[in-house]
Design a protein around this nucleic acid. Structure first.
Length: 499
DNA sequence: CGTCTTTGACCAGCGC
DNA sequence: GCGCTGGTCAAAGACG
């Protein structure tokens, strides 16, 4: 076999060993959300951890990316009772407790018209969500038998033709990785492997085993042109609680997918950069000695900057795919990172790597070569502006062409608008995002949810000792300058040592 | 013995 | 209609 299938599938054992700590952290997070909900009793939706918007103010379509925190006070659902699933992945009771409450999904709330469209798109595909509807439709079998699948596909087909909607949204991540798969925090079971055309390396098919009914699948394949690049394609949305270590990736993929599923949203190209930036900011990973891909979510207080010089949106394909390219160095041409795009790739976001001041503090590891993975996102500290960190909001004035497949649009650094003209670029960027399109509130909500949750849990997960200095600096900065992130977005009292 | 991976077979979609 | 390709199934083997 020509590809680099060196290692056993996943470090499940190491993951198990971390669940207790995670559970404690997440319980703190949940306590925080309870406090939040008490503060905002009028927001009934938030009681379920869904970031919703003021519907009165948003008559138009609305996309909500929910990082749901389900405060389970009632009886556990059928899925929640599962302590050991069919595949034998045992969970500790603590893990199960927190899993009962932490729900991540692609929750899309639309006005009636769009709701119908999305129902057709989601419910008939494998992207069903556990949300309100999911509670009523308890799954009864692990995977639909092929006959059922055929029926589903036929239904899907007809409805797709009716609504002219793409079939499934996929999120593909290209990243340098030495291991067989990226450890994204989820438990996967390999169910197939095929040789794909034009690639000497086989494509492996995995399904999520965290829940018997979880529709999420992923495909893993090495890039034919650079074997060190692993292309992981996610499809579907988890319909079960996720371990904390998996929420960030799922958050990112779900949010990215949601933008593809919202045509008007994805049509606003410049904003996509901003939204994705926010999302990724919320889920920047850090190196874990256990070789797991971990995500730290405290960067809103330490607002790292992530540039997305290339992005294009198209939903022409039956499988609209948003590709997050985390491998391209900053000096590469914008086109170079799209030389081996997946067949269905339609949307490309090139997370251009660049030097980050944080790199020097990152532990040396294989994941550092993987610097594209968000630490590539370049925390661009402007030392001449009082330690401000710039948030790339994209240049909304730049005449982007949209809807062209595989035609990434380079957004030069010049497009990092008004980095120096706003007293607080974070405020400016956030306001730009929010005010330009209400739907980006949802994307931002995803980012903020992840951030707030992590801050509530102490601001770090696991061995996250890196970047602390930068974090301290930025927290102070935000506390002194952030005018929007006070009570509603950053409601947590800072630890004493950060004051 | 239970679980997971491997791998050949099968099926559906799509292009010619 | 036929062949190619992607995606999935499921039996068999490997592994702990």
């Amino acid at each position: 076999m020509c590809c680099h299938y060196f290692m056993q599938n996943q470090d499940l054992e190491s993951a198990k060993g971390e669940t207790m700590g995670e559970a404690r952290e997440e319980n703190k997070m949940l306590e925080f959300f309870e406090i939040l909900q008490q503060d905002k009793p009028e927001d009934a939706t938030n009681a379920k951890g869904v970031f919703s918007h003021d519907e009165e103010n948003e008559e138009s379509e609305l996309v909500s990316l929910s990082l749901g925190i389900s405060i389970s006070k009632g009886k556990p659902t059928k899925d929640e009772k599962i302590l050991k699933n069919k595949n034998g992945i045992e969970k500790t009771e603590d893990e199960d407790v927190h899993n009962k409450r932490l729900v991540l999904g692609l929750d899309i709330n639309l006005d009636p018209v769009d709701q119908d469209e999305l129902t057709a798109n989601n419910s008939t595909t494998e992207s069903s969500f556990v949300g309100e509807r999911g509670k009523e439709e308890e799954p009864t079998e692990m995977w639909p038998p092929s006959k059922v699948l055929k029926t589903m596909k036929s239904v899907d087909k007809s409805e797709v033709s009716q609504h002219d909607q793409p079939k499934k949204t996929r999120v593909s991540i290209r990243a340098r990785c030495d291991t067989q798969t990226m450890n994204d925090g989820c438990h996967w079971r390999k169910y197939g492997q095929k040789m794909a055309k034009g690639n000497p390396c086989p494509r492996a098919y995995y399904r999520c085993t965290a829940s018997p009914s979880c529709p999420v699948r992923k495909q893993v394949q090495r890039c034919a042109e650079d074997m060190s690049i692993l292309i992981t394609t996610y499809e579907g949305t988890h319909n079960h609680p996720l371990p904390m270590s998996a929420t960030a990736m799922a958050c990112t993929t779900s949010a990215a997918a949601s933008m593809l599923q919202s045509p008007s949203l994805s049509s606003q190209h410049g904003l996509v950069d901003s939204a994705i930036s926010s999302i990724i900011n919320s889920s920047a990973p850090y190196y874990n000695p256990n070789n797991a891909l971990n995500f730290s979510t405290h960067q809103v207080s330490r607002p790292q900057q992530f540039y997305f010089p290339n992005s294009s949106i198209s939903t022409l394909n039956s499988h609209p795919t948003i590709t997050l390219d985390l491998t391209t160095p900053p000096t590469s041409s914008s086109n170079s990172s799209f030389t081996c795009m997946p067949k269905y790739s339609s949307t490309n976001l090139n997370f251009s790597s660049g030097f980050s001041p944080l790199h020097s503090s990152m532990p040396q590891s294989p994941w550092n070569s993987y610097s594209g993975y968000f630490n590539s996102g370049t925390l661009s500290q402007n030392r001449h502006h009082g330690g401000n960190y710039m948030l790339n909001t994209g240049n909304q004035n730049q005449p982007h062409s949209l809807g062209h497949l595989h035609q990434p649009i380079y957004m030069s650094n010049n497009s990092t608008i008004s980095q120096h003209s706003f007293p607080n670029p974070i405020v400016a960027a956030t306001e730009a995002i929010i005010t330009s399109n209400p739907k980006f509130q949802s994307a931002l909500a995803t980012a903020l949810t992840a951030y707030v949750g992590n801050e509530a849990s102490g601001g770090r997960l696991r061995e996250n000792h890196v970047l602390e200095n930068a974090e301290l600096m930025n927290l102070k900065l935000l506390r002194s300058e952030n005018s929007i992130g006070n009570s509603s977005i950053f409601p947590l009292p800072l630890p004493e040592q950060w004051k």
